[in-house]
Design a binder for these strands. Structure first.
Ligand code: ZN
Ligand code: ZN
Ligand code: ZN
Ligand code: ZN
Lengths: 135, 135
DNA sequence: GCTTGACTCTATAGTGACTATAGAGTTTAA
DNA sequence: TTAAACTCTATAGTCACTATAGAGTCAAGC
């Protein structure tokens, strides 16, 4: 199948597929006489695997590592598990940061009502006067 | 003061300051004889304002809008408030996405223990076999 | 055989918010 | 005077794409 069909089957843009090839995540083994990329079912599966990993927010470099590991079936799981643990930890950290940010934003938002002018704006005042608290 | 001193005072890198100038967030009004940028206390305050906004994850474009608003003190607060509300909503959405992602990652992680080989890896199996569930 | 349209190719630039160079010029202190 | 420390501009890199431009390929219909 040609790249357009692979794109449709995997719900992935044609440019993205070519980008993954450039990034060594998906190699095109065959080309047609007219130099068109040709793919088989294994390519569909590999691309779907990549998509699932991207949905888990794994980076392309992490996915590349996973694909390499998949090709050495005798190896131990440690590396996969460590990657997952690190990844989960990063997501956890980001959630905590965002929760704090949300509370900060909400309290800032409470310092202003719509009827005011910019001059009296609690939000801008807070953001500005904080700067003068040098002690 | 020169750019290095401004950088130290605001805990901001020299390149970032120059970048903000290029992005019209901080204009350099004066230059020395040797073409060095010169700043005053107002620049320190503006840069600190920008930093506070960045800590709130506001985009440079949003900060540019806030700076413009700050310069028209008679205007109403609506625009500021709308920006904050939108921003809070986006943070909220992102938190929910990440919480779901975390749960997904955790359940995936539970499908494997370190003693296994890649061949038996529950994580890789889940990511791979999902692809065959075409119905 | 020819045209039209849909597809594909490569190469390049853009996104956002920086960071990191290279290669030049300026200032300051010893 | 010379060395170090600073500054200047311009350019490229980061990440995971997305969007062009300009060319070539292919299949159907006339
Ligand atoms: Zn990761
Ligand atoms: Zn306000
Ligand atoms: Zn925003
Ligand atoms: Zn495993």
């Amino acid at each position: 199948m040609k790249i357009g069909e692979l794109a449709k089957k995997t719900d992935c843009s044609v440019q993205t597929i070519r980008y993954y090839e450039k990034e060594q995540l998906l190699c095109t083994t065959q080309r047609s006489d007219g130099n068109f990329r040709l793919y088989d079912e294994a390519a569909v599966e590999q691309l779907l695997f990549i998509k699932l990993c991207r949905n888990l927010d794994l980076s392309l470099s992490e996915i590349r590592q996973l694909l390499t590991l998949k090709r050495s079936p005798g190896a131990q799981c440690d590396q996969v598990n460590r990657m997952m643990d690190t990844h989960i930890q990063q997501v956890e950290t980001r959630i905590q940061e965002l929760v704090q940010l949300r509370e900060h934003l909400k309290s800032l938002r409470r310092s202003c009502s719509s009827e005011r002018t910019i001059e009296q704006c609690g939000i801008l005042q807070t953001l500005t006067t904080n700067q003068h608290q040098k002690r």
